[in-house]
Nucleic acid binder design. Structure first.
Lengths: 199, 199
DNA sequence: TGAGCATTAGAGTGATCGTTCTAGCCGCGA
DNA sequence: TCGCGGCTAGAACGATCACTCTAATGCTCA
């Protein structure tokens, strides 16, 4: 079920990443998804904004799950976030520097114009920060410190995308990941031993 | 001289920050600047891209000088970058969360579409990183470490703008500034005493 | 004053924008 | 077989897009 709807969201996601939100037309989305204008407005009665919100919500959930999968597979809690930076850099190079994240682009374009889109973007990024915070508190870091590191991680990745795509060189993400990891290591080392988990 | 040209660039800068690059029309720029279409194409024969490049170059220089002014006025080398984060947060709140930086927005929108704009954005951000690097090496930090911290600073600020504007809460910039400052303090403390300058 | 040129004025171009609308298709329950 | 509602098809709408073009203006320097 929802196959046409899914195709519309998937096509929009890719187009937004490549051309931005305002830079993508519904005609492009129609052609790329194989859905007609009628279908798009059937599933997204609010038009382009409705569609944008759906893309942001969907991508937000996917990336949160991706973070949890990567961080969960890390050999130790300190390296979980670093692995995400490295993975993002690899993705960027493999896709010829297409934006890996439509949310940051949409947020910057329309944060002052569309409240629904702004809120959806905030919710998505907050959910990532929640995930990083949970990951670090599980390693014994206190909540405030963990959250500050989560915010820095998300900011550094989103900002790193801008820098990496402009330069057409993703290595900055790896270097920023190393810097953030230093802070995470210090925070984990400072945690009371009794609260630490993991190896 | 260049008064009309300047007005066009200033108006475009403000509109790009508020509505994005693709979200701003030449008609809006014409009205906001008081210049006619003819004048815009007289000064920017390449049209919107030409204008965008000029906005990026101009803003890039201004922000580089602003960083140097703020960092130079800091009471010690460690706090220079932190003061920039705090200043950015204050600006964001004073302007009702209008994007302080048109360059990040333009870069994300058109990095895969317009090479001149992509390169101009890269040049601007690289010049900021050069400035941070120079600031830190003057405090004795070795060049590679200083550059990595410069890259993280610019990424964290650009990414922080996305997060702060979506949340309509600029405090994340202050917290990220604190985290980055920890790394800078460690780097300065690790520098050989003979190379340190400042108090 | 008058020639020459940078600049401004603004109507007009075809293309494309997001959106609306009506007609028809399809599969399923009775 | 019929009817109905979810879904699709795609033409059409007015608005607006980036851009072009021809004239006219105003400033400078002789």
């Amino acid at each position: 079920m929802g196959s046409t709807r899914d195709k519309i969201i998937t096509a929009s996601n890719e187009l937004f990443r490549r051309y931005g939100y305002n830079g993508t037309s519904l005609a492009q989305i129609s052609e790329a998804s194989g859905a007609t204008t009628g279908s798009i407005y059937h599933f997204f009665p609010g038009g382009k904004v409705d569609l944008g919100v759906a893309v942001v919500n969907t991508t937000g959930s996917i990336y949160r799950e991706l973070f949890e999968a990567i961080a969960g597979a890390a050999e130790n809690p300190v390296n979980g976030v670093y692995d995400v930076f490295v993975g993002a850099a690899a993705t960027l190079e493999e896709t010829d520097f297409i934006d890996p994240c439509p949310i940051g682009t949409i947020a910057r374009e329309v944060a002052n114009v569309s409240d629904p889109l702004r809120r959806a973007a905030a919710d998505a990024m907050n959910s990532w920060i929640d995930a990083v915070t949970a990951h670090l508190t599980a390693a014994g870091v206190d909540d405030d410190a963990a959250r500050a590191l989560g915010e820095l991680s998300v900011s550094a990745i989103e900002g790193g995308f801008v820098l990496a795509r402009s330069r057409r060189d993703a290595s900055v993400l790896v270097r920023s990941g190393e810097q953030v990891t230093k802070l995470i290591r210090d925070a984990v080392d400072a945690a009371p031993l009794t609260q630490r988990s993991g190896t």
